[in-house]
Amino acid sequence: MGLFAKFKEAWLKPMSFDSLNEGFYDDLEEALILADVGMDTAVDAVAQLKKRAYAKLLTHEEDVKNALRDILTEKLSVGDPALDLSTRPSVALIIGVNGVGKTTSIGKLAHRLKNEGKKVLLCAGDTFRAAAADQLEIWAERAGVDIVRQNEGADPGAVLFDSLAAAKARNTDVVLCDTAGRLHNKDNLMKELAKLRKIIDREAPNAAKETLLVLDATTGQNGLIQARQFKETAGLTGIILTKLDGTAKGGIVIAIAQELQVPVKFVGLGEGIDDLRPFDAREFVNDLI
């Protein structure tokens, strides 16, 4: 829009506070729900917004929208969005339900860390899914980093144990551990995950540790339940939100950040090796509404 048109619009449509009626706020609430933010968070955010708009005497739609963006950004600003890789080695365990993008994100992250000058080792901890280790091995080649793997059907704990030993022997900076996709309501698989967590705590007690939950942006309200369960089983230090290159918005991470105080650390924006970016809350929110 040209400057004159903008000026004219601002001049001819001065909004009084009253003219921002319920319809306007309903539309914002609808936009949030369509972005998978969830009913509770959407209602809460809009209630907060009404108060703020009133307190700050906001009368223009765009100003009010910006205030909503502020509120959502605040909700997302929890914890430290950077990875803690302060020890050698440091260990990152990558977990999540089936098909969300764990293995791919590890490939991208390995590439990123290597470019930062770190020596990276991948642990093929998914010994269950067909060709999972082959897939990770291709990513290791692409990123030019080491991998420790065993045969399909091997004990993932044994692979992890080997990887940690190899990391110490080879002076590795970061171990990125892939795990099999598992639904959070499966007790036996969650117990297996808790075991992996314990192996890391035992074998690398002083290492800086990250436990990253990979979440598919197309996931709806179930995402919050996933995050709760994985946090309880393995602890969570961050989230990788994948597939944001589609039309899904991934709004459920706002509810997750709020309830569990776990920050989003990275976003996945495609299937290529460079398609992983640090999370920018403001940018994310601007895409949301």
Partner: peptide, 12 residues
């Protein structure tokens, strides 16, 4: 289609 899909199911 993944049963966990949210609002984007319709678009896709």
């Amino acid at each position: 289609v993944d049963a966990m899909t949210g609002q984007d199911a319709v678009n896709a």
